[in-house]
Amino acid sequence: MQARTPAPADDPGPAKVGRAEAARWSGALDLLKLVRSRPGVTRAEAARAMHVGSGTATEISARLRALGLLAEAPAPPTGRGRPTTTLHAHPDGPLAAVVDLRFADWVVAIADLEGTLVDTTTGRHASKRPERVFADIRAAVGELAGRYDDRVQAVSISATGTVRRNAIVQSSVLGWRDLEVEPLLPGVPQALGNDATLAGLAEARLSHPGRSVLFLTIEVGIGGIFVDEGHAVTGATGAGGEFGHAPLGDPLVACPCGALGCWDVAVDGRAVARLRGEAEPEDPRAYLIEALVDPGSRAAVEECAAVLGRGTAGLVNILDPEIVCLGGLAPELRRAAREPFEDAYGNGLMGFRRDDPPRVLPSALGPDAPILGAAEAAWDMILTENGIAAWTERHAE
């Protein structure tokens, strides 16, 4: 066996070099994530938040600036002391392509590090056939990404349906089952998520950072997710959070998912129509919007609001959130029949929770929540050692 030559005294050795390089990447990722959550943070504030010295923060930001990942601008003067700079997305830095696939239409956008949707295009489904829908979306993603050379580093899709790994295993509203979603941009990492899951992720991270949030949204059916300190609890395969298919509705009513008594068909426009003795509406969302202001639908709306409140209480008892956030048409349903909702919610809570129940708040992000959540998922892929290394290799070419 050949003897090893001792390293010089001033040579840190490969192990120490590896640890030092890992630490440098860790600091860089920490700073990028901080700028993503707090665009315009000053370099001095960043140093304090990262618990590093000003020299280290300066060195990290300089490296990221040289790699086209961050930009700096002079901070407004605040009095005596050294001037500092504010940190922002680099104007030529990495981007994400994000998709919101909905019941009747879709949105495609480009998202930068700061969460800004810098380019957007929309389209309606000419057909519900999945190959036609995704052909249109793929063309839109390719066209938008082509405007930015090779800067798009991730694709993320929010889909109205149950998602498991890289497939839409069931979308009752679109009539799809077991649909594998092929890459929209060849060679670019891609994520697929349920629309309610991603909307809840965005609401929790952007509106209630660091809190445990139960998010519920009504569109066609009800969906949601529990987000604990910025992490969506989606289970072993990503299909978790299908609250709409908990047996919280009428056990005699069949759901398109194949189960009986789903909450999904007990709180939306389909439920209002059924309670009124009418046929299932072609557009349950539009039907519910009209029913909320129709005096003839009052009793049905109150029943749906009570079912929403009762189910919400059950999930609060199970998950113990700090905040309940209602998205989609859920805030409007609660507002239209507040007393039935509040009575059912309060009566459904365990006794010890009633003195200080979690606040029930409307969505702060509105209809943009799913696509903003898709952006969060995309940047979760980009802001990794592998993601930044891939950008660095391209930037060095």
Results as ranks from 00 to 15, higher is better:
Pro12Tyr: 12
Ala15Lys: 01
Gly27Gln: 10
Leu29Met: 01
Leu34Gly: 06
Val35Trp: 02
Val35Met: 03
Arg43Trp: 02
Ala44Ile: 02
His51Asp: 14
His51Arg: 14
Ala57Ser: 15
Glu59Pro: 00
Arg63Thr: 11
Leu64Asn: 07
Leu64Phe: 10
Arg65Val: 13
Leu67Trp: 08
Pro74Ala: 11
Gly81Asp: 03
Pro83Tyr: 02
Pro83Met: 03
Val107Phe: 00
Ala111Met: 09
Leu117Glu: 00
Gly123Leu: 07
Gly123Met: 03
Arg124Pro: 00
Phe134His: 13
Ala135Asp: 13
Ala135Ser: 12
Ala139Thr: 15
Ala140Met: 03
Gly142Gln: 14
Leu144Asn: 08
Asp149Tyr: 06
Asp149Ser: 14
Ala154Pro: 11
Ser156Gly: 07
Ser156Phe: 01
Ser156Thr: 02
Ile157Tyr: 05
Thr160Glu: 11
Gly161Lys: 06
Thr162Tyr: 06
Val163Ile: 15
Ser172Thr: 15
Ala191Leu: 08
Gly193Gln: 10
Asn194Ser: 08
Leu201Trp: 10
Leu201Asn: 07
Ala204Ile: 09
Ser212Met: 02
Ser212Tyr: 02
Phe226Gly: 03
Val227Thr: 09
Glu229Ile: 04
Val233Gln: 14
Thr237Ser: 14
Glu242Asp: 11
Pro247Phe: 07
Ala254Lys: 13
Ala259Cys: 08
Asp283Phe: 04
Ala286Lys: 12
Tyr287Met: 03
Ile289Pro: 01
Arg298Ser: 09
Arg298Val: 03
Ala299Pro: 03
Ala300Phe: 10
Cys304Thr: 13
Ala305Met: 10
Ala305Gly: 12
Thr312Arg: 03
Asn317Gln: 08
Leu326Lys: 01
Gly351Glu: 14
Phe352Cys: 08
Asp355Gln: 12
Val360Leu: 10
Ile371Asp: 04
Leu372Asp: 00
Leu372Trp: 04
Gly373His: 08
Asn386Met: 09
Ala390Asn: 13
Glu393Asn: 09
Glu397Trp: 06
Glu397Thr: 09
